[in-house]
Computed example of a mutant assay.
Amino acid sequence: MSVFPLDLDQAAQHLMQDYPPAHELHLQFESWKVRLKTNSKELVDDLADYYGPFVAQAQESHVTVHAFETEPLNLDWDWTRKTPDPGKTKIKEAWVNLKGGRAVRKLITGMTFLFGGDYHLAVGPCVKNSNQIINFINNRHIQWHLEKGCLLGHAAGVSFEDKGLALAGFSGAGKSTLALHIMSLGAHFVSNDRLMVENKADETLMYGVAKLPRINPGTALNNPDLASVMPAEDKERFSKLPTKELWDLEHKYDAHIDECFGPGKFHLSAPMNGLFILHWTHSGEPMEIRRVNPDERRDLLAAFMKTTGLFYLPPQGDEEKDPPAEVYVEGLKKVAVYELFGGVDFAKAAELGMRFLKTGDVK
């Protein structure tokens, strides 16, 4: 396998010949449709369980993703290691541009992703790393929206009837936790960590990705609707921990929306009427909220802006760069933006979020 050429088409032909994809899974994310082809029945079963309500009957698709279950490829290419994101130190990815596309290698798992044009290929121990296959499929969905002119936001999203609210915050602020608290008050789920924002003449829309929220033990213990995600032995063990230690735990559970909140609660689009930016701390102070102008609060806007990363390839001929802050300011012109500051208070924030979804205001 180390003799693959730096040519996406030729590499794809080699892989399809060596690992014939005999199994399929069809998914539909509102109007976007994807077909997975793989040599692993186990992977199909795992992804069908994960995606649940988005599994569809066989149909024409926008994208076909091939996932080849095999040992990690040993590709003798001149890889460039990706600089870690701010605040991170571990180098997890390397990449190289190919004729016709790009290859990204996950340095920890050994998974390799090759994509460009009509090719979307995942190669390596796929079943063991099905979460990376999920991310790859969702990244294809994100690319489709960005090519239609959307902005990429780092936010969760919820909706109620004809209104939607995005939730952003710097790392660890609890946007997914807050989204689930608002759901417990009757809202629908739109997205966990990424939103694609479309600024139309008369309204702003937000689109989500089919990624289940990954919650920590503190979130599960403090929301009765999430009790089922935590095994009984974990519940007994973690409930004895101090609050600070509990929230700092690096232990996650996938929260299946339909299982926790009932069927039909995961919607992938909604109007984007508001944006809460979580700028709070575990200080014990009262939580406060105020409406802000994102053009004047670029420090807060940075929590919502999201770089596209290695898995986005701009359309042929376009320059590869992320939109500046000015573009986000323009994109949020019709959105009411609020800063939540002071102490962390999910119950109060959820109440305000639901009030906004029902009335269009937080008063």
Rank of each mutant, 00 (worst) to 15 (best):
D295C: 15
D46I: 15
G262P: 01
G101I: 09
W79C: 00
E60D: 12
V158Q: 03
L241G: 03
A173S: 08
M111W: 04
H141R: 11
S191T: 12
H141F: 13
Y119M: 01
A347M: 04
E259W: 09
D162Y: 10
S2L: 14
D225I: 04
G353M: 09
Q17C: 15
R291M: 02
T70K: 15
I182R: 10
K252N: 06
L165F: 07
F304M: 08
N216R: 10
S176D: 03
Q57Y: 05
V292T: 10
F54R: 01
M183A: 09
K252I: 07
G274M: 08
K306V: 00
I91A: 02
P53A: 11
A156N: 02
H267F: 00
K148W: 11
L268A: 06
P53E: 12
G342W: 02
D76Q: 08
F238N: 08
R237G: 02
P242L: 13
K363M: 00
F29S: 11
A173N: 02
K358L: 05
G149V: 01
E351K: 11
P21V: 12
G101V: 06
N74R: 15
S171H: 13
L241W: 12
V209K: 04
K265R: 10
E236F: 04
K128H: 12
M111S: 03
K148N: 12
V96C: 06
T83Y: 00
L98F: 09
I133Q: 10
L352W: 15
L178G: 03
T177P: 02
D295S: 15
T80A: 04
K128V: 00
F189R: 07
D193R: 01
I133V: 11
H188N: 15
M1V: 00
N216C: 04
H141A: 15
H23A: 13
S61C: 14
L165K: 01
S269W: 11
L114F: 06
D118Q: 11
R355F: 13
H181C: 04
F113H: 11
H23P: 03
P84F: 07
Q316D: 14
G52N: 11
T89M: 13
P20Q: 04
A156M: 05
L226A: 04
V44D: 12
K265Q: 06
I142M: 14
V329A: 01
A350P: 10
A56V: 07
R35W: 13
G153D: 09
E259M: 10
S40A: 10
P323C: 01
K211P: 14
F160T: 07
A48G: 06
G174C: 07
A12P: 07
Q132W: 12
M206C: 08
G116T: 03
K306H: 14
P315G: 02
W95K: 11
E147D: 14
D299P: 05
L6M: 15
L47E: 09
P84V: 08
R102K: 04
D299L: 12
V158A: 03
I108G: 05
V3Y: 08
Q59V: 00
S269V: 05
V344W: 00
